[in-house]
């Protein structure tokens, strides 16, 4: 495979503060990688650097490299709009636009040049189906997205991220604001999506990490402490610190 996502000695700073301290990581394709670790250890910062969302934060700075295949995503040849189309993102809090359900999904494709109404209709339906939301909203596509429940809004945000056909999906605690039923729907969805996508998910929920991920990376104070197959991390971690964190003794 040539499009593997990989970081090389990645450091991210906010002003003088080094939030991510030199991380080397390679993400397996078509699988789910969970990032776990105590609050403030740099998981979100690391995740945001993967599709250059940190560019939008004044004062943040980065050294080291992020590669997709043999392309450096921070090189001047990379068009950040194309990059973010290829690497989608979903945030902790559902953030639908103040628009209709349909317009939320059609937003991305429109700006990437798709004008044909039929084609847009198809994309909207496909994305909503992939996000397991179609049946719930197909009769009210043109009502406001804000009228959906929190769990539905989050699935809408996933559908919106899928609308531009990404290869990689970054999820930052996508279910932490949701009830158990919505959460299990999202987890199911992740299992379905990894058949065609590479997924990186930040979570504070150990059971969730164990359930949905193939690989788990344990972050501590901006460093990658341990990175391995999920089953190994959860049954036989090599570092005592990891063991303590996953068994809930701190964090």
């Amino acid at each position: 495979m040539t499009d593997t996502l990989r970081t090389e000695n990645l450091k991210v700073y906010y002003g003088e503060h080094e939030a991510v301290k030199g991380i080397d990581m390679t993400f397996a394709e078509q699988s789910v990688t969970a990032l776990i670790g105590p609050s403030g250890c740099g998981k979100s910062t690391f995740l945001r650097s993967l599709n250059r969302m940190n560019d939008e934060i004044p004062g943040s700075r980065q050294t080291g490299n992020i590669w997709i295949g043999d392309k450096d995503i921070n090189s001047s040849e990379t068009d950040v709009t194309v990059l973010r189309q290829k690497i989608g993102m979903v945030w902790q809090r559902p953030n639908p636009f103040y628009k209709s359900i349909y317009e939320n999904i059609a937003f991305g494709p429109k700006y990437h040049g798709i004008k044909n109404r039929k084609q847009l209709d198809q994309i909207v339906e496909d994305s909503l189906r992939k996000a397991a939301l179609w049946d719930e909203v197909k009769d009210r596509l043109h009502t406001s997205a804000l009228s959906l429940s929190g769990g539905q809004q989050q699935r809408l945000c996933i559908a919106r991220a899928l609308s531009v056909n990404p290869d990689i999906l970054l999820l930052d605690e996508p279910a932490s604001a949701l009830d158990p039923i919505s959460t299990s729907k999202i987890e199911e969805l992740i299992g379905e999506l990894k058949k065609s996508l590479t997924i990186v998910i930040v979570t504070h929920n150990m059971q969730q990490a164990a359930r949905v991920s193939d690989f788990t990376a344990y972050f501590y104070l901006g460093s990658l402490m341990e990175y391995n197959e999920t089953s190994i991390i959860f049954t036989n971690p090599s570092k005592p610190n990891t063991q303590e964190y996953i068994s809930g003794r701190f964090g």
Binding site: N51, M53, E56, V80, T81, V82, L83, R84, Q85, G88, M89, W91, N95, P96, F97, F107, G108, Y111, H112, C157, R160, A161, S163, V164
Partner: peptide, 8 residues
């Protein structure tokens, strides 16, 4: 963020 995240 949502808009930038979609590549707008």
């Amino acid at each position: 963020e949502a808009s930038y995240g979609l590549g707008a």
